[in-house]
């Protein structure tokens, strides 16, 4: 139990800092969404066309 208490005591968690970043996150939410949309467009373009066969054929024996 002593160890557990030590964990809590030592862990620095400034709450203000966390709250700030969360606000910043929601403000730029729209931009992030647009960026993800672009990214998903690109993924649709480059993703392996025959996903099932590709996944099945990926076999890697003899590794460490």
């Amino acid at each position: 139990m002593a160890e557990r208490e030590q964990v809590k005591k030592n862990a620095p968690r400034p709450q203000e800092e966390v709250a700030e970043t969360e606000t910043a996150g929601s403000e730029s939410g729209e931009a992030l969404k647009a960026e993800l949309d672009d990214l998903l467009d690109e993924i649709d373009e480059v993703l392996e066309t025959n996903a099932e066969d590709f996944v099945k054929s990926y076999i890697q024996k003899g590794g460490q």
Partner: peptide
């Protein structure tokens, strides 16, 4: 579960290592 019977999340354990 820890060896002394108490528990901690991986995050709490990482906080402990970081602090040290």
């Amino acid at each position: 579960t820890l060896t002394d019977g108490s528990t901690a999340t991986p995050l709490e354990i990482q906080w402990d290592i970081f602090t040290r």
